[in-house]
Computed example of a mutant assay.
Amino acid sequence: MRDLLADGHQVVRLVRRAAARDGEAVWDPAGGYVDPVGLAGCAAVVHLAGAGVGDRRWTAAYKREIRDSRVLGTATIARAVAAMEEPPAVLVSGSAVGYYGDTADRTVDEDAPAGEGFLPSVCVEWEAAAAPARAAGIRTVFARTGLVVSAEGGAWGKLFPVFRAGLGGRLGDGRQYWSHISMHDEVAALRHLIDTPDLTGPVNLTAPEPLTNREVTAAMGRVLRRPAVFAIPAPAMRVLLGEFAQDVLGSQRVRPTRLLESGFVFRHPDIDDAIRAALAG
């Protein structure tokens, strides 16, 4: 949002309370409502909302929240833009590399099929929920995002304090691939999806070369100048995280083929640079 405002664009935020200021519009994703006045005149709509996958232990209720927060919200937005007399030119809808499931050492791109398990099934339903927008002829792009390197949230937000304390290390055997992207490149890639008319369907938002957890661990220790010798064994992670542990320990070796082919240039393709950028804010 700050990036768009800095370039002189008008931005409307969807809020789940009464609109308190200009530039806000009310929506109720569970109830299927979006204020149509708030969306009027928008050239692009970006929807990335969803409950944090790693925020809580995966109970049946929280798994339902993970799914519903993505599927119901996307369906609400898609129906709203499809019903507009002058719809936006593009809908950029969130998704994730979780779509591919555990790929082990196999490299995959946007042509790969969905994997098996809870997160792949969520991603499949998440993307399918945008069908009304696609049927209305709105260019719809699915941003299949990897692990965003940020000190402010997500998986990396939890890693930084641990590594700063000198307690960081690999997870499991460390051989699983992590497909990451710097926060700067994530924002720039989302802008690229908005601004590139030829892009439609799934686009992987990950750095050009995925790294193993062991390589990421070494980079964190190197940049932070802290030891990274500790390790959390797989059985301990299963005790700590429950079902979510299988996804943390799983491997996703994902390449951003369509993003690269469309001319996108990464500012932080190297993991050390991505970590330094996150520390610099």
Rank of each mutant, 00 (worst) to 15 (best):
D3V: 00
L4H: 06
L4Y: 10
G8H: 11
G8C: 10
L14E: 01
R17H: 15
R17S: 14
R21T: 04
G23S: 04
E24M: 03
V26H: 15
W27G: 01
D28S: 13
P29V: 02
A30E: 08
Y33W: 13
P36G: 10
V37L: 10
V37Y: 04
L39T: 08
A43K: 12
V46E: 03
G50S: 13
A51D: 13
G52K: 07
G52V: 01
G54Q: 02
D55R: 13
R57E: 01
W58G: 05
A60Y: 00
A60G: 03
I77E: 09
R79E: 08
A82W: 11
A83P: 05
V90S: 02
A96W: 01
V97F: 02
A104N: 09
R106V: 04
C123L: 01
A128H: 09
A130E: 09
A130V: 07
A131E: 15
G137K: 08
T140N: 13
T140L: 12
F142K: 12
V149Q: 10
V149G: 03
A151Y: 06
K158N: 15
V162P: 10
R164A: 12
L167C: 13
R170S: 05
G172Y: 09
G174Q: 05
R175Q: 13
H184D: 11
A189T: 06
I194F: 04
T196M: 02
P197S: 14
G201K: 05
N204V: 02
L205F: 04
L205S: 10
A207Q: 08
E209M: 08
E209Y: 06
L211V: 14
T212Q: 05
F230M: 14
A236I: 11
V239Y: 06
G242L: 00
E243H: 06
A245D: 02
Q246F: 02
G250L: 03
S251W: 01
R255C: 02
R258G: 12
S262M: 06
G263W: 04
V265I: 15
H268Y: 15
H268A: 01
A277R: 14
A278P: 14
G281I: 06
